[in-house]
C-alpha cells in the first residue's frame, strides 16, 4: 500500500518535467519533422502543401550542400585536433600544483566564458583588410607588400574561423583533461621511473593511454560542436563571399529566415541531425563496451 502511494507520488513529481519536455522539445521535434515534407513558407503560414521528399531531393541537388560539407570538414579537421592537442598540453602543463597554477588555469578558461559575439567581433577586427594583423605584417614587419584579404579568401576565412574555434575551445578541453589527469595513479609513474622511463616515455605510455576515454568523449563532443558552428560565421563572413564560407547552420538559417523556406530548413535540420546522432550512438556504444 505504501509502495503504491509512493509510486503515485513519484509520477506526480515526474509529470511536470515530462510535460515540459514534451511541449518544448518533443512536440517541436515532431512538428519540424512533419514540416520537412511540406512546402511551408514563413510568408504563407496558413497555406502549406504536402510535397513528400521534394525538400530532401532539392537539398541533394544543391551546390551549397557540398560547399557547406567541405567547409565543415575543413573546419573540423583544424579545430578538433587543434583543440585536443592544445587543450591537452595546457592541462598537462597545469595539472600539477605550483604557485600561480590557479591563475593560469583561469586565464586559459577565459575564452570559454567569453561571448561568441564578442570574440567574433574581436577576431574580425584583427583580420579585416586594414586590421591589426595586416598592420603588423604590412606596415611593421614588411612581410607582405599589400594587405592580405583574410576574410574574403574562402580558405583563409575558414582558417580564421577555425582559429577562433580553437581559441574558444582550448579551455574546455583543458578542464576535462585536468580532471582526467588527476585520476592517473601516481604509482604508475613511480614504477615507470624505477624502470628507467623518461618523461616522454611516461607521457606516451602512461598519461595518454590513461586518458583515452576522456579523449574519445572530447573528440565526439568537438565533432558535434564543429557541426554547430554558426555565430562566428554569421558575424565574420556572413557565409560569403558568394556562399564560399557557408556552413550547415548558416545555410539553414538563410533558408528559414531570408528565403522563408521553413520546409526546406526543417529537412536540412533533420538531414544533419543524422550524422550527429550516429556519432552519439557510436560514443555511447564505445563507453558501454569499455565499462
Amino acid at each position: 500500500m505504501y509502495a503504491k502511494k509512493l509510486r503515485r507520488d513519484a509520477y506526480l513529481f515526474f509529470i511536470p518535467g515530462f510535460l515540459f519536455v514534451c511541449w518544448f522539445i518533443v512536440y517541436p521535434l515532431v512538428q519540424n519533422f512533419l514540416y520537412s515534407f511540406y512546402d511551408f513558407r514563413l510568408t504563407r503560414l496558413s497555406d502549406k502543401t504536402f510535397i513528400g521528399l521534394d525538400n530532401y531531393h532539392a537539398i541533394f541537388h544543391e551546390k551549397l550542400l557540398w560547399i557547406s560539407l567541405r567547409n565543415l570538414l575543413y573546419y573540423g579537421l583544424l579545430t578538433v585536433p587543434g583543440q585536443m592537442v592544445l587543450g591537452f598540453l595546457a592541462a598537462y602543463a597545469l595539472y600539477r600544483s605550483f604557485p600561480g597554477v590557479k591563475f593560469f588555469r583561469a586565464v586559459y578558461f577565459v575564452p570559454v566564458v567569453t561571448s561568441w559575439v564578442v570574440a567574433s567581433l574581436v577576431f574580425k577586427f584583427i583580420f579585416t583588410d586594414r586590421g591589426f594583423l595586416n598592420y603588423l605584417l604590412t606596415d611593421k614587419l614588411h612581410w607582405t607588400s599589400a594587405p592580405v584579404s583574410w576574410l574574403s579568401t574562402p580558405f583563409l576565412a575558414l582558417t580564421v574561423l577555425a582559429l577562433l574555434g580553437i581559441w574558444k575551445g582550448i579551455g574546455w578541453v583543458m578542464v576535462l583533461y585536468l580532471a582526467a589527469l588527476q585520476n592517473v595513479p601516481q604509482s604508475l609513474y613511480d614504477a615507470a621511473k624505477v624502470d628507467g622511463a623518461g618523461a616522454w616515455q611516461r607521457l606516451v605510455h602512461i598519461t595518454i593511454p590513461s586518458v583515452r576515454q576522456t579523449s574519445s568523449f572530447i573528440q565526439v563532443m568537438l565533432i558535434i560542436g564543429s557541426f554547430n558552428v554558426f555565430t562566428s560565421v554569421m558575424l565574420m563572413t556572413g557565409g560569403g563571399p558568394l556562399h564560399e564560407t557557408e556552413v550547415l547552420l548558416s545555410w539553414m538559417y538563410n533558408k528559414a529566415f531570408k528565403h522563408y523556406d521553413l520546409g526546406y530548413a526543417a529537412a536540412l535540420a533533420y538531414l544533419f541531425a543524422l550524422p550527429i546522432a550516429v556519432l552519439n550512438w557510436l560514443q555511447m556504444r564505445r563507453d558501454k563496451e569499455s565499462d
Binding site: 574580425k124 583580420f127 579585416t128 583588410d129 586594414r130 586590421g131 599589400a146 584579404s149 583574410w150 576574410l151 574574403s152 576565412a157 565574420m236 563572413t237 556572413g238 560569403g240 563571399p241
Partner: peptide, 22 residues
C-alpha cells in the same frame, strides 16, 4: 588592379574609410 573595393567581407566600411583616407 586593387583600385576599387569595399564590398568584400573584411573591407573597411566605406563611409568610415572615406573619412580615414582608405
Amino acid at each position: 588592379q586593387g583600385l576599387i573595393t569595399g564590398f568584400k567581407p573584411g573591407d573597411t566600411p566605406v563611409t568610415e574609410g572615406h573619412a580615414k583616407d582608405v
